[in-house]
Amino acid sequence: MKPDPGLYDYLPWDARPRIEWPGGARVALWIAPNIEFYEYDPPPNPQRKPWPRPLPDVLGYSTRDWGNRVGHQRMMRVLDRFGLRGSVSLSTAMCVHHPEVIAMAAERNWEFFSHGIYNTRYTYGLDEAQEREMIEESIATIREHTGQHCDGYLAPALSHSEHTIDLFAEAGGTYTCDLFHDDQPTPVRTRSGRRFVSVPYSLELNDTIVYVVNRIEPRRYGQMIKDAFDRLYAEGERSGTVLCVPLHAYQVSHPHRLRAFEDALDHICSHDRVWKATGREIARHFLDHHYDAFVAAAQREAA
């Protein structure tokens, strides 16, 4: 085990090259709906139980299935209203189980990136070859079912190994969503030396963390998103920032929750200097325009 993941350099918030987003935007906003499949009876992982109750865990399973049966369509209507495209964090088995959901996202020109095959198959315990097989299969499934190149990765159920990011970079990916250390994209060091970045994906504003872990009230969640946006918008005048709102239809789309989220989007979208982007677009823009300057700045900081 390592005391530090060694993936990125320290770069002080007040000593960075300026990030300029397209159109002079202050904030790059991206919405990341997780479209997931949780298995009824998954093979048990030695390090993490998929369900808290003895199988069948009807409550856990059916809570998540609600998102696929009810939640996605409702969430899509809200995002459509604001002209927001999702960047889908995809359990790629969804392409086989529920291609109807994938078709609705594809019709909207949403981005798809890999979130593993099932959200009940964890990385823990996989050897490097096994993890590579899982990652490559998920990328191939996205290509086969959507025609898209998979640029991003969020490890299934946020379960990682020391090799996860290296393996994804070697499989042709360009960005990771697994790191929460910053409000701007960051160059990420991989063993292959490929140009690879972290795109901020928020854990604090992730609806599942908000509702399941932190047990926050729906209207307060809406207020948290507004507050985060206001601060990033103000600071984005100096250098562009990123606001990501990760979603799960089985949480945010409930009738007692969705309107508070919609109110937050209403607030954000009433501002004009917002770049409504996808994860891939943010990663590419940063790689094309700011990556080299950030690497050089980090080298100066280290020296």
Partner: peptide, 28 residues
């Protein structure tokens, strides 16, 4: 360290649900 090969096998990956209790459909 590695996992049993069945951890990378997906016998229930098929259209619809991974059990036979109900048919897959979306409310709307």
């Amino acid at each position: 360290m590695s996992l049993d090969p069945r951890f990378l096998q997906y016998p229930q990956r098929r259209h619809g649900m991974d059990h036979d209790r109900y048919a897959w459909s979306m409310l709307e």
